[in-house]
Computed example of a mutant assay.
Amino acid sequence: MQLVVARIGRAHGIKGEVTVEVRTDEPELRLGPGAVLRTDPASTGPLTIESGRVHSGRLLLRFEGVHDRTAAEALRNTLLIAEVDPTELPEEEDEYYDHQLIDLDVVLADGTEVGVITEISHLPSQDLFIVERPDGTELMIPFVSEIVSEIDLENQRAVITPPPGLIDDRAVIASARDAETQERDSEEAEEAGAEERDA
């Protein structure tokens, strides 16, 4: 199967290097020297990685045949696609490839539907699930054990136990408003009762 592993960003320097937005949790495997990648649009590829290095927290790649800034800039926004055996699994337990997680149903522990994972965002600090809700809005859910309690590939679902406010800030705001209203009503009732007693 085909898996998008990176998106090419802007050119870096004058010798053909480009920045890349990594979309795989195994860049050393998918984006190492010698890797041959398909591209989207297809007209720009395939591309063979000549070298790679990390600079200021960003991965820089140089491709065979791309040796100046103009050629590198022409690749901007190109998606890099690797061929992956669908039966292949990560070496570490409790690790998953992006293609295993995409399209999983996200549910709460009680089975309440939250949405569907449409993308995995790999940030320096942590990975995020990009989840599309039934109403079309998106949520970002950190892929950490404190929040994602179970990945059930057999039943194609991810079970989450989100902290207050993660799923719907509006619900939290509404609850806070309700609490304020109840408190205000209670205070007004107490004041009214005090006035009646004074009378």
Rank of each mutant, 00 (worst) to 15 (best):
L104D: 03
V131G: 01
L61D: 01
G13M: 04
Y96H: 07
G57A: 04
E195T: 13
G136V: 08
E196V: 12
D85K: 09
V159Y: 07
R170S: 14
A189H: 08
E50S: 08
R170Q: 14
A179P: 00
I8F: 01
G16L: 00
H122R: 08
P134K: 05
E92V: 09
V107F: 02
F129N: 00
T118Q: 13
A189Q: 11
R38Y: 12
E91V: 09
L31C: 00
A194P: 00
A6N: 01
N77H: 15
V131C: 02
R7C: 09
L47H: 02
E195P: 04
A11F: 03
P46L: 05
L37A: 04
L60R: 08
D85I: 10
V22F: 02
D40E: 14
M1P: 10
P134C: 06
E28G: 03
S56C: 08
D68W: 10
R53T: 03
V66C: 02
A192C: 06
N155L: 07
R10T: 12
A189L: 12
L31Q: 00
H122V: 06
R69C: 06
D185Q: 10
T78L: 02
P162G: 05
D110H: 04
S125H: 14
G34H: 00
I167P: 05
L104R: 09
T19W: 05
A171D: 10
L37F: 04
E88D: 13
T78S: 03
V4F: 03
G193F: 02
Q2L: 11
S149R: 15
I173F: 12
E132R: 14
E154Q: 11
